[in-house]
Amino acid sequence: MQVNIILNGTKVTAEAAPDTLLIDFVRAHGCYSVKRGCETSNCGLCTVFLDDVPVLSCSVLAARADGHRVTTLEGLQEEAAEFGAFIADQGAEQCGFCNPGFIMNALALFREKEYPTEEEIKEYLAGNLCRCSGYEGQLRGIQNFLAWKKAKQEGAE
């Protein structure tokens, strides 16, 4: 079957088997930030935005994305780089494998809630698996990013 999507702002049309997962489709088109981790929809490593809503691409058929916008970390480089520096500063990207999914979900959180509480951050990011860090560095990175963003915003006013 033919699948037509807007992938990171570019129209992509390609043949795909009916059982092709979205993760395989986007990786076949060069989006290597989207990773396999658990194969059970539990780790968050394969998170993409489908029409600006975070979804686990290992649980979505490519055919379901037909006619929709799909955004991966490759399509959010500027937005992600600003936030990612705060995660790196806390040493929370030890091996880096979980970073793309973690950053995608954090960006989704920031879009939903401009200044989330610590509890909201923990709740929103509960589905992201990191085998290296214990999550404290990521939490500190998010909190530092939000404090910086707030100070920057207040300085501009």
Rank of each mutant, 00 (worst) to 15 (best):
I5M: 11
D24G: 07
L146K: 00
V34E: 03
R64K: 14
K152I: 05
A126Y: 05
Y32K: 10
L61W: 01
M1G: 15
R69S: 15
Q94E: 04
K152Q: 09
T71P: 05
E118S: 00
G141Q: 02
G155F: 12
S57T: 09
L76H: 02
G30N: 10
I23R: 08
R140L: 15
Y115W: 00
Y135Q: 06
Q77D: 11
K150V: 01
E82Q: 12
T10Y: 07
F25H: 07
T20A: 11
I5G: 10
F49P: 00
N8A: 05
A14Q: 03
F97S: 12
R36K: 15
C132A: 13
P100A: 07
A65V: 11
A28H: 12
H68V: 04
G91A: 08
E78W: 06
A62S: 14
R140T: 10
E114S: 05
V55C: 03
N8S: 04
E119L: 02
A156Q: 14
P54C: 14
L7C: 01
A126T: 12
N4M: 09
Q77C: 01
F49W: 08
F83D: 09
A88H: 13
E119V: 11
P18R: 09
I23F: 06
E112T: 09
L146W: 01
L109C: 05
E123T: 06
E119Q: 08
H29C: 10
E112I: 04
Y32Q: 07
G30F: 03
A126G: 07
R64Y: 13
G101M: 10
G44V: 11
L125M: 06
G9H: 05
K122L: 15
E112R: 03
C43M: 10
V34M: 03
L45I: 14
V70H: 01
P116R: 03
I23V: 15
F145C: 02
K122M: 12
Q77V: 04
G37D: 06
G96A: 10
Y32A: 10
